[in-house]
Design a protein around this nucleic acid. Structure first.
Length: 264
DNA sequence: AGGATTTGACCGCG
DNA sequence: CGCGGTCAAATCCT
């Protein structure tokens, strides 16, 4: 069996075990324990889904092969949307559904603790400045659908309105399970961290505490436990407070502010 | 070479 | 039909 086959076998086995664990947890009567454990299980399954997604993106592996290999495994795996990896015709996309948004106005748009990648810039009617569009760097590897828009609204002092769309469903690599590569073992050992991942969000994190798995699997988690495990209380209304962030402006520039569209 | 940015094209919606 | 949001090829950068 080649490495791809071995990797798939391992992912399949792990996913099956996670599903079995979830079934056990569903029979647990203690609501809080169940919800926390449930979310951990969902995180595990999410990781497997991501691994499969990455595998499917491997150029050496035909997408239909991956689809066939995984389609018979279990409902979670089957829920992967393989269409996301297939090529689409230019300009063919689904418009974003209405999601929660947050706005802030800042003099110094800065690093907000997440990695962004610019995907567009546009001149907006009735505005002399460009609006730039960013999506989460982990849009594809972790299927994080968060986007943000940065729109300069005045010069002297330069003021930017930043609009965030949706919650981050990605995690920093430092927060992902540790992978120990044991040369004596065929496969790396994945150590799952069972720390409480639902601690109070820091101020720096703002609206971006990862609630992803709760969102993705919310139909499987009791609403009461959602309240317990999700400490976010996002304010969907405008938060137009001007935040003056002592930031590394150089870093911001190099990361996010670039040229302009010729047209529009 | 691979990831990030630029920017013209394209699409959905009002 | 125009505007705004997104895509994706070309280009740039490290």
């Amino acid at each position: 069996m080649d490495n791809y086959g071995k990797a798939m076998e391992e992912v399949m086995r792990g996913c099956e075990l996670a599903n079995q664990l979830r079934q056990v947890l569903l029979k647990n009567n203690e609501l809080t324990t169940t919800s926390l454990a449930q979310n951990l299980v969902n995180n595990v399954i999410n990781s497997f889904n991501s691994a499969i997604f990455i595998l499917s993106n491997d150029k050496n592996i035909p997408i239909d092969q991956v689809q066939n290999d995984f389609s018979s495994i279990n409902p979670v795996i089957r829920s992967i949307d393989f269409k996301e990896t297939s090529t689409t015709t230019r300009g063919c996309y689904k418009r974003r559904r209405t999601t929660q948004t947050w706005e802030k106005v800042t003099e110094t748009p800065t690093d907000d603790g997440h990695q962004w990648r610019q995907y567009g810039q546009k001149k907006i009617a009735n505005s002399q400045y460009f609006r730039t569009y960013y999506r989460c760097t982990h849009k594809y590897d972790q299927r994080c659908k968060t986007t943000k828009q940065v729109h300069k609204i005045q010069e002297n002092p330069p003021l930017y309105k930043i609009t965030y769309y949706g919650h981050h469903t990605c995690e920093n690599m430092s927060n992902l399970p540790h992978i120990i590569d044991d040369p004596n073992d065929t496969f790396p050992i994945i150590l799952l961290s069972f720390n409480n991942t639902f601690s109070t969000p820091s101020k720096h994190e703002g609206p971006f505490l990862s609630s992803s798995h709760l969102v993705e699997y919310k139909e499987e988690v009791p609403s009461s436990s959602l309240e317990i495990s999700n400490p976010i209380s996002p304010n969907p209304t405008l938060d137009n407070s001007i935040s003056r962030l002592e930031s590394d402006h150089t870093q911001w520039r190099s990361q996010e502010i670039y040229g302009a569209w010729a047209k529009n």
